[in-house]
Amino acid sequence: MNAAPQARRLQAMALRAAGTAKPPHVTIRGLCKRFDTTPVYENFDLDIPRGELISVFGPNGCGKSTLINMIAGLVAPDGGQILFDGMRLSEIKFGYVFQNYREALFPWLRAFDNIAYPLKIMEVPPAERRARTERLVAHLGITLDFNLYPYQMSGGQQQLVSIMRALIVEPEILFLDEPFSALDYEMTLFMREQLQRIFMETGTTTVLVSHDLEEAVYLADRVLLLSRHPARIADLAAVASARPRTDATLSDADFVRTKAHCLDVFQREVRRA
């Protein structure tokens, strides 16, 4: 099942080792979007590298969620082009995780069937749906009672099910819109570890919107810092810390420096009237 992402990840790692510039996975050119009279994006260009986890961070209302919603096709841009290896969104498989897990899962389905549901839409036969879901569960090594209904699970467990539902189609790209902001701190820490593990397992290109700078830096290969609207790329800061990152990483000199830099850029953008 994971041969393709695995191969891509190895390829990505090989490219990184060779110091070669990777071909970007997602290319965004001339993106425009306005709400009423407010231009949120004006001729916005961005390349998202393959097999990396990009955190999107920026001032309130700068259009973080709008950006991934446009990339994921939930919000129609007014202009511009978004291509995935030169293909349109309808030609690729992707996963999307909502902030509000309570309203994103289907309460009438058990966790297992929630995870398998995207395969039903793709008209995969029931037996294969079952087998693929079981394989994903085993592969991620997540211990949960998948016979429960979402409302019988904790918030973190529900969001974990949401993430697995996004992964079941073996997405080429995974979008997460503030996935942990509705969880308590303890659960957030646990979920960060889960997401990092899933990312290291699958190597899927991931775009994460976050409102927590520490989380954004901790999880990311690069932090995309946006300016106030109309949004520009204030910085695309690389996070060098090796994976798996742990609590020790948080006090690591490199990590602290990157985080301080991001905070600097962020505050500069916030102050800019």
């Binding site: 994921a72 096709g73 939930l74 999307y96 909502f98 509000n100 309203e103 289907f106 839409i121």
Partner: peptide, 9 residues
């Protein structure tokens, strides 16, 4: 959100 979730799939 539920409708969007289905649509996004």
């Amino acid at each position: 959100t539920r409708l969007l979730a289905a649509k996004v799939m």
